[in-house]
Design a protein around this nucleic acid. Structure first.
Length: 357
DNA sequence: GACTCGTGGTG
DNA sequence: TCACCAAGAGT
């Protein structure tokens, strides 16, 4: 006797257990005819790319308060968008967000297109996000495949072929599972299931609405799926960062990083290159300007996607009259919160200003 | 396909 | 401490 998974079972579970998220129309409201704002759906989906719900929540609320419509975002200075995005990571998302908003505002008069074809052309919108906007905002029958869906579907059908080779099969299965009625809620239900029940480690199979149908649970291999190729270990890079402190105002010297690449377009304190074989016998010799540079005890450790970083932090009092290196400016101490400083640079500033050596 | 691209939580 | 992972996309 084979029990096949039923979308109705999952939707019944979702009607009770759906997470309360600021960008989501609850299943009960949806049943009353409330329609999602495509702008909010798009904004949330971009923010949620490789980013946890907990990290996104406050940023989403802030963005919607600053720019309530896509046209507001389209006319905002990119600088302001980068500042608001600071700390959320993957900064090319913020640049593409701004570009996409301009496209929607100018070429589409502020209305998001409904076809997958057109959605996929938008900057920052790939296969997942196009399907998510299509099904969540417009309730179309599009199969979303994110990390949650990969895990849930891999287990449901005991797919032992490793990712990413199994992705087409997973997409096909997800498409077959998706009901004609409430496809948007179904997509969100699978993702909620993956986030709260069918978790990567120690899945709560005992309370899963798909317990009876799950092949991996039956075979006792749920926790081992989905299979993935082992990841390469991260190398460690070393460098130094220089926190110049204005003797008259207390301001900190900042500069802009190049527009593309790592932390592209974000602000930083001046520093050396980050290199794997960098040996800082005399880091002060690399300082961007003269000063009584003091090396702080300890170091800033930060991990990026593909390498670890260890930064030696130096600081020095610098006269307001000093000749500044090209592209640098003084950033007021009480305005640092609003600068486009990525987290690693906030750590560097905190190390220098916070004492600790 | 293989890289690049951030950050914070978790076990 | 550390690897893993999270509503992936661009090159």
């Amino acid at each position: 006797m084979i029990t096949s998974p039923s979308s109705a079972d999952l939707l019944s579970w979702y009607d009770i257990h759906a997470r309360d998220l600021p960008w989501r129309v609850s299943p009960s409201d949806r049943g009353l005819g409330v329609v999602p704002d495509p702008y909010a759906v798009w904004l949330s989906e971009i923010m949620l790319q490789q980013t946890t719900v907990a990290a996104v929540r406050d940023y989403f609320v802030k963005f919607l308060r600053l720019w309530p419509t896509v046209k507001d975002l389209a006319t905002a200075p990119e600088e302001d968008v980068m500042k608001a995005w600071a700390g959320l990571g993957y900064y090319s998302r913020a640049r593409n967000l701004k570009k996409c908003a301009e496209t929607i505002a100018n070429a589409y008069n502020g209305n998001f297109p409904k076809s997958m074809d057109e959605l996929l052309k938008l900057p920052g919108v790939g296969p997942y996000t196009a399907a998510a906007i299509s099904t969540i905002a417009f309730d179309s029958h599009a199969a979303v495949v994110d990390g949650n869906v990969e895990r849930v579907v891999s287990r449901l059908y005991a797919i032992e072929q490793p990712l990413p080779d199994s992705k087409p099969l997973i997409k096909d299965r997800m498409g077959s599972l998706t009901p004609a009625d409430r496809p948007g809620d179904f997509a969100q239900a699978v993702m909620d299931l993956g986030a709260t029940i069918c978790t990567p480690k120690r899945p709560a199979c005992a309370i899963c609405p798909w317990m009876e149908a799950c092949e991996a649970r039956k075979n006792g291999i749920a926790e081992t799926l989905p299979r993935k190729a082992p990841k390469k270990q991260k190398p460690t890079r070393y460098g130094a960062a220089f926190v110049a402190i204005n003797t008259d105002t207390g301001a900190v010297l900042l500069r802009r990083r190049p527009p593309r690449g790592l932390l592209g377009g974000m602000s930083e304190v001046p520093g050396t290159e980050w290199s794997e074989d960098f040996e800082l016998r005399d880091p002060a010799a690399h300082a961007p300007l003269d000063g009584p540079w003091h090396t702080h005890t300890g170091e800033v450790r930060h991990t990026f996607t593909h390498f670890h970083l260890r930064l030696t932090i130096l600081s020095a009092p610098v006269s307001n009259n000093a000749q500044l290196p090209a592209g640098c400016w003084w950033a007021a101490r009480d305005g640092l919160e609003d600068e486009a400083l990525p987290t690693v640079m906030r750590k560097a500033v905190a190390c220098a200003l916070g004492g600790l050596g």
